[in-house]
Design a protein around this nucleic acid. Structure first.
Lengths: 197, 197
DNA sequence: CGCGTGATTGAAACCCTTCAAGTTTAGTGG
DNA sequence: CCACTAAACTTGAAGGGTTTCAATCACGCG
């Protein structure tokens, strides 16, 4: 719903009512059913999504045909191939829906309008920095941690996703096989592991 | 040298002479000798570096005391813990010098000035997007590719770093042990591998 | 009910690490 | 400029963590 998006922008970015009114005409809502594909690798991405409800996923497909999950995006998250969006380059990944999902679709016309609103551009930059930090942490984990450590990190970082994402997709996100994840979970259960939060 | 930095900003960001003159008073050059540490984990990072000549490295140290290289930064690259810089949070990594290095030091006062120059903020955003894309590609590789594939990717992506970075640091960047990298190289030599570019 | 998808389990194979020992390289002081 | 030392790189053997392949189980949905 647009009102959710408005509330989000006001709280997170400090956008005023008046400013939001300027942006509203450029907004579009869309219902996505589970499994639907929003973006394909090598297409040019012309939209940025804000997830009102539901759950999207970004993933690559390698030469061997295997999927590798780059990111999950539940309610109040953003998702797009921003590099493709901004520079009109071919997208590096696919985007599809893990659940029935409701999104706000933001096109270039939205960002043209929003570019004049300082609060928004500041927020946008901040969001980018957050993404960079997240990526750096994930790289650290992938470089230095075992499958079990990476899974524990995932559980503690995204407890709300655990029950909503199929296990084989979590395995893909962690960079291991579904079989390995199953064994990691079995071992953790044996040791009676409980998330610390 | 400051003139190198000026040339860089003019070419890459389209900054005018007049605009650069406004920024120049906030610039500081610094000589760093090999091995010197510029930033420590958990400190607050108050500077952004532009490398005029030489080579810097960002890395984390895990609980077991092992170093994991996040990024190499040769001439004409930027380096900072931007998240720490922007939000005054503790830095996630160390920065030190792999070679004797000459840098331009940019503090908050520089960014305050530069914030008024549209060309610069646009360039800055673009640079952030580039970093995000790079990180995504690296995550894809770490998730989906073998040690050999990751090394080949490194060789082709950063041929200029091959001779300047000690092998054990490259191993750390790739997320493998120095011994493994040595064996990967031996195997590639046996197969007479040559970089495609 | 039956089919398909996802999760589990087992055994073998493989990749990479670990540890230990050597060899080479690079830097430093005499 | 050589000699010495420390660091970097290489090599081998053993072990561990993950993958692969195959079979089985569990579940939801037509």
């Amino acid at each position: 719903m647009i009102t959710d998006f408005k509330k989000y922008l006001q709280q997170k970015a400090g956008i005023s009512d008046a400013d939001f009114d300027k942006l509203e005409p450029a907004l579009l809502t869309k219902q996505i059913s589970k499994g639907a594909v929003l973006l394909r690798q090598d297409e040019v991405c012309s939209e940025v999504y804000f997830i009102s409800s539901g759950l999207l996923r970004a993933y690559t497909v390698d030469n061997a045909g295997k999927e590798h999950v780059i990111q999950f995006a539940p309610e109040n998250w953003w998702l797009s191939d921003r590099n493709s969006f901004l520079f009109n380059e071919p997208a590096l990944f696919f985007i599809d829906a893990i659940e029935d999902t409701e999104i706000i679709v933001l096109t270039h016309s939205f960002f043209d309008l929003a570019g004049n609103i300082t609060k928004f551009t500041e927020f946008n930059t901040k969001a980018l920095h957050n993404q960079v930090r997240q990526h750096q942490q994930r790289i650290s984990l992938l470089i230095g941690a075992s499958a079990e450590e990476r899974y524990i990190d995932f559980v503690e970082r995204y407890p709300n996703l655990l029950l909503r994402v199929p296990q084989w997709m979590i395995a893909s996100y962690l960079g291991i096989t579904p079989e390995s994840l199953s064994r990691v979970r079995k071992e953790l259960a044996r040791r009676n592991f409980k998330p610390t939060k």
